[in-house]
């Protein structure tokens, strides 16, 4: 499975650069092109400012968790990374975000292509009112990534990747709404993976799932790196500790602190972070 995912072009470029990079001498952090590089990012809707001054690099092939209390702007930030906020009336943005070295908000950057390269999984499973098979290949068909004859095998491969194939192989033509919540979320993951994204954004993907399904989804996410870059918003600090290589703490529309997950939880540098991770608020 990992080798299949390893064909993501953006990540591959980044990894190759990472191998070739160190000779040039700059510090290790800039030896690769970050999957995302944010400089002074601010986001607002109309008169309301939601985020200010976010500086953040997200390394390719890692899991980054965005944590913080409700309303801190972490979901807004996530939705800025695949340009989903473009469609919200009054959306404004400052600063620069680059996706593997390219300006995400450049005039010549097609948002449709951005969203193919940067997949997303939502809080609630949102399968389309189509058959299970059509759900998986919806993105593949929209982006014309494969000829008609290969669609069946793409469905099978994607469903196997998420471990759903055995459960649904005999009813690919039927409705996804008869599946359990966890299975629906896995189906949505299969749908997101079928278009071979470089990055996967997850917005509290397990908050509506039971513990067993949550564990299944988490195991799966761990197995997708380093072929895939994952950015996950979560309210569940334990989940951030289990999954993330790095954790970013947002509070009040600012990025307060970022660091290795263990470091951020054991030894937070900021007072606010310390209060949050120790459960004193949020």
């Amino acid at each position: 499975m990992t080798d299949a995912v390893g064909t993501h072009t953006g990540t591959e470029t980044a990894l190759r650069q990472a191998e070739a990079g160190p000779a040039a001498g700059p510090p290790r952090e800039v030896a690769f092109t970050p999957a995302f590089s944010c400089r002074g990012v601010g986001v607002g809707f109309g008169a309301k400012t939601v985020l200010e001054g976010v500086d953040l690099d997200i390394a390719p092939g890692t899991v980054t968790a965005l944590v913080g209390p409700t309303g801190c702007g972490k979901t807004t930030f996530l939705r800025t990374l695949n340009r989903l906020n473009d469609r919200v009336p009054g959306f404004r943005r400052s600063g620069t975000i680059s996706l593997v070295g390219e300006d995400l908000y450049d005039r010549h950057m097609d948002p449709l292509v951005v969203r193919r390269r940067v997949g997303m999984l939502f809080q609630r499973p949102n399968p389309f009112p189509l058959s299970i098979h059509e759900n998986v290949i919806a993105g593949v068909k929209a982006h014309r990534l494969a000829p008609r004859s290969e669609l069946r095998s793409i469905t099978e491969r994607s469903l196997r990747e998420v471990g759903l194939w055995e459960a649904v192989a005999d009813r690919l033509g039927s409705s996804p709404f008869r599946l359990s919540g966890g299975q629906q979320q896995l189906l949505c993951l299969a749908r997101a993976l079928a278009v071979r994204p470089d990055v996967l954004l997850l917005d509290e993907p397990t908050s509506s799932l039971d513990p067993v399904s949550t564990e299944a989804v988490e195991d799966l996410l761990r197995s997708l790196v380093p072929g895939l870059t994952i950015v996950i918003v979560t309210h569940n600090l334990a989940q951030a500790r289990r999954l993330a290589d790095r954790t970013v703490f947002f509070h009040g529309g600012r990025m307060v602190e970022t660091g290795e997950t263990a470091e951020l939880f054991e030894n937070p540098q900021q007072e606010e972070t310390r209060n949050y991770v120790s459960g004193r608020f949020g």
């Binding site: 989903l84 997949g119 189509l130 929209a142 997101a192």
Partner: peptide
């Protein structure tokens, strides 16, 4: 549902494709 339409947008579909598949 808004979430379902947004899922289609997040997959990189055009408005017309969202209408067609959702």
């Amino acid at each position: 549902p808004r979430g379902t339409q947004e899922g289609a947008v997040a997959l990189g579909m055009t408005d017309l494709e969202v209408v067609r598949s959702v």
